[in-house]
């Protein structure tokens, strides 16, 4: 399990990276944290002509608050996200999800942009990104463009990034007051990709649900925004019955795959269970209960 030969570049600035991408005409791959890409290379399941390592581009690594949003440089380490006081305070759903991404030693290298660009449907970040309607900034030869979650995830491990584009920034809206969050995940072992995961952020006004943001991982080729469940909560309120109804509608919305670890029916069932748990836990937090 040794990687095939490749050409290697590790520019310290973005522009030369873009120039290299253009030069290799789709035959190069961006190497970010490498926690998936290097494994694929070791298995020889991918064989790019060149790797363009963006780890030395310092200015792609930052976490900042700007215009009511949390902006993260694409090469920000998951470990930095995990331990960032800003993230914990302003977007705790992201902090909670981060702790479920692999293990600490893989989060040391793994990056938020790398995870989103890899677009594994069972991964946590794409679900959070989808739930919160995040934005991605991609830089290409013609400058920057901003992509929303819906257009970004196009299919199984396929994104809207063009071969000559680099992901440079991830933007997520900050959580506002009277909101709660939860990332519920079921995996067979600690640290594994989820069989099913559900990201939830629920904001309340008194007994009413102002906004519900829900998305599931592991139930299809891309992260799945659970709109029907969101609508149920926003229209029918936050009674137990309404939460159960929302969870049922979440499950209905899925068309999950069957694989070695779980059947489609079981995944659909888990979507209901985890959606219900995620909403309940998020709600308790929104109401200021410690859970």
């Amino acid at each position: 399990m040794k990687p095939p030969a490749f050409e290697y570049h590790d520019p310290v600035e973005l522009e030369p990276a873009l120039e290299l991408l253009r030069r290799y005409q789709g035959e190069a791959k961006i190497l970010a944290g490498g926690q998936s890409l290097l494994a694929l290379l070791n298995f020889r399941l991918t064989r790019p002509v060149a790797l363009i390592d963006v780890n030395r581009i310092r200015r792609l690594s930052y976490i900042k608050e700007q215009d009511g949003r949390l902006c993260l440089g694409a090469v920000t380490r998951q470990r930095a996200v995990e331990f960032s006081p800003l993230v914990r305070e302003k977007l705790p759903l992201l902090a909670e999800a981060t702790r479920l991404v692999g293990h600490l030693p893989t989060r040391t290298r793994g990056t938020i942009g790398g995870s989103l660009a890899h677009a594994d449907p069972a991964a946590e970040y794409p679900a959070v990104f989808s739930a919160l309607d995040g934005e991605l900034v991609a830089r290409g030869p013609n400058g920057e463009r901003v992509l929303g979650a819906r257009e970004f995830f196009q299919g199984l491990m396929t994104t809207a990034l063009a071969p000559d584009e680099v992901l440079v920034e991830v933007r997520l809206p900050l959580m506002t007051a009277q909101c709660g969050w939860a990332f519920e995940e079921f995996s067979r072992r600690q640290g594994d990709f989820a069989i099913v995961g559900v990201a939830a952020q629920v904001c309340v006004v008194g007994e009413r649900c102002k906004t519900a943001r829900l998305a599931a991982a592991g139930v299809g080729p891309t992260p799945l925004r659970l709109e029907r469940a969101e609508q149920t909560l926003e229209q029918d309120g936050l009674s137990e019955r309404s939460i159960a109804e929302a969870a049922a509608r979440a499950a209905e919305q899925t068309e999950p795959p069957s694989d070695l670890h779980a059947t489609a029916q079981y995944r659909r069932h888990l979507t209901r269970v985890l959606t219900q748990r995620a909403i309940s836990r998020a709600l308790a937090r929104a109401r200021g209960e410690r859970r």
Binding site: F43, R188, R189, Q190, G191, D192, F193, L260, H261
Partner: peptide, 24 residues
Amino acid sequence: LVYDEDGQQLCASFMDYLVPTAAE
């Protein structure tokens, strides 16, 4: 160690062959 009907082995990595960890 799971095989499909054609005899392809479906868990040739530690992602799919689940060795219990300290958490389990």
